[in-house]
Write a protein that binds this DNA or RNA. Structure first.
Lengths: 337, 337
DNA sequence: CTGAAAGCGCTTACAG
DNA sequence: CTGAAAGCGCTTACAG
């Protein structure tokens, strides 16, 4: 390559990397670029990395890629942000044990490849003890707070998202708003329920008999809604979209039309449910894409020294969960049922 | 590291890689391993790769990671097979244009990092012209045949999967089996319809008035089923699970109980639909996980010279699509409706 | 059984 | 404005 352009490898490097503070005569540079083009020359990133101690690769360690509905969107957000920054994203989907010892292994794989930084994405945990070796490099957490308080993290604001649903419902005139809760003991359960309670309290509404916990699936939603319907709610807010599917079924069985007789709201925006229901389901989205993108952007800043982990780690970044309005919500009709 | 064990870097390399045809005295080896352990020494894979011209990394280029429901399972299958073989999987999710020029760019990113091989995963295309630069390294295709016939590929046997549904229905006594088809012009449309027709023909059954094309979503399935129901089918086989959701709605509206009055079968096993429906939906799974795993296993064989692309490329590997039986199918009741 | 030396393909002071 | 030389951290003939 250098021979082809009649210059040294040094000059090739300067030209192709536009090394700062280095002037190369324009026609020399042109000659280099032409030769590179002709030969299809591409610098070997491995060699570059060895020399610069930077791989321009970041590792994403994720649990439950297939089980959890939205891990795909975290990956997508991270991937696109990485592409934008000319970083390569390597992914390992491990069964995370949330055990600092065991989970160190997949991270080691990234370290061995000189990853510039690491993203550790968990779902359903609010605080974790990160694998010890993760702090060898810049790192960020998605979906969990670092127990040690040294790794920056990003979380969805499920509580506020949940409260905003109640607000919306109240604004439309609902006063008897029921919550089909999850019986599972995960942070999302607490956050969404708490948000509902926040909203009801803010509006000065009673929640008596209006909260029923059940399995976090369609059958649970069906059972919970059937119970709830005995207490004449005008709206049922469900812990998740799958429960909302059950709520539709329960409403149909009681001869109630959505949204005229009963408004229903879900949570998750889990494709393809909301668009596949009759009528389509108003629900709350989790900012998965945004969290993935945030992780890469933040990691990049950490790597380049444009940000400091210590400053960020103090309080997790919290991303809001907006409501997606579709057709399952209306003002309560005056006739009672 | 070498100093710590009191040996040369050569010996360290021999011990840690158990270089073939090289004997190292056992206590020397033990000393090396002990030192490595103590120091937490890990060989730099970049340096190794530079020297050996192998990165032990393979690249997966995929389109529509988030849009298509099951890309996650392809990634999971590929990832787990890669881990099993000590390979790292790097992923780029690009908008594939199926244009050999444009799609060359993301592949170049892998080549620059000296990927040992490349997986190109597309969905919904039966034949593609692969980017020219892909053949620089061993490569395999998922979900599409290579127009040039040089790259090995793997495809789901949707046609046979579809035919097997009809067979099952016939075995249970159904004779008026309707098909809610997709109006979209993609290979899956043709394969699934053809399989239905194969099955009906094999059983000597008429399909007159029993095939209605519609949009491939819940609303399309609803409309198609409403039409179909005028021709008294005892079973409706839907192009996909979303259409099946619509079929449930249509059946409910006509007062038909599933499966007693009408059997319904879907296709895709798209979570969370099948388990969230009342009753749960019998459907056909696409072998996404298996295709991902096949791709890595095959690529690995190609890289190691254990397989030859020329031999494999002749005919694509076809993986079967099994039926997952749930509760939406029963023998037709004798009473007519 | 073990080590010295070369070299993988780059970048980066440094010199001119 | 350009190049010679060193060195990143490994592996691999080769020598002993």
């Amino acid at each position: 390559m250098a021979a082809r352009a009649g210059v040294s490898q040094t000059t090739v490097s300067h030209v192709l990397n536009s090394t700062p503070h280095t002037r190369v005569k324009e026609d020399t540079a042109a000659r280099v670029r032409a030769a590179a083009e002709e030969l299809g020359y591409r610098p070997n990133r491995l060699a570059r990395g060895l020399r610069t101690h930077a791989s321009d690769m970041i590792g994403l360690l994720t649990e439950e890629i297939a089980t959890t509905p939205h891990a795909g969107r975290i990956i997508l957000g991270a991937q696109q942000e990485a592409s934008r920054r000319n970083l390569t994203l390597a992914i390992i989907n491990s069964e995370l044990h949330l055990d600092p010892e065991v989970d160190a292994a997949p991270i080691q794989a990234f370290l061995d490849r000189q990853a510039d930084g690491i993203i550790y994405a968990t779902v359903y945990h609010d605080e974790i003890i990160a694998p010890e070796n993760i702090s060898t490099r810049p790192a960020v957490l998605i979906g969990a707070r670092d127990a040690a308080g040294v790794i920056p993290s990003v979380l969805p604001d499920e509580r506020a998202g949940s409260a905003s649903v109640v607000e919306m419902l109240v604004r439309m005139g609902h006063r008897r708003i029921a919550f089909a809760a999850s019986a599972e003991d995960v942070p999302a359960t607490r956050g969404r329920l708490q948000g509902y309670l926040d909203g009801m309290q803010a509006a000065g509404l009673s929640t008596e008999n209006l909260v029923v916990p059940a399995a976090a699936d369609a059958r649970g939603g069906y059972a919970a809604t059937l119970d709830l319907l005995d207490h004449a709610p005008t709206a049922v807010f469900c812990y998740n979209d799958r429960m909302a599917m059950g709520a539709y079924r329960a409403a149909g069985q009681r001869g109630l039309t959505i949204p005229t007789d009963l408004s229903v709201v879900g949570f998750d925006d889990q494709a393809p449910i909301p668009d596949s229901l009759f009528p389509t389901l108003t629900t709350v989205v989790l900012p998965h894409y945004e969290m993935g993108a945030w992780a890469v952007a933040t990691l990049s800043a950490l790597i380049d020294g444009r940000a400091e982990a210590g400053l960020l780690a103090g309080h997790p970044t919290v991303l809001s969960c907006p409501i997606i309005e579709r057709d399952s919500v209306a003002s309560p009709s005056t006739r009672s049922h």
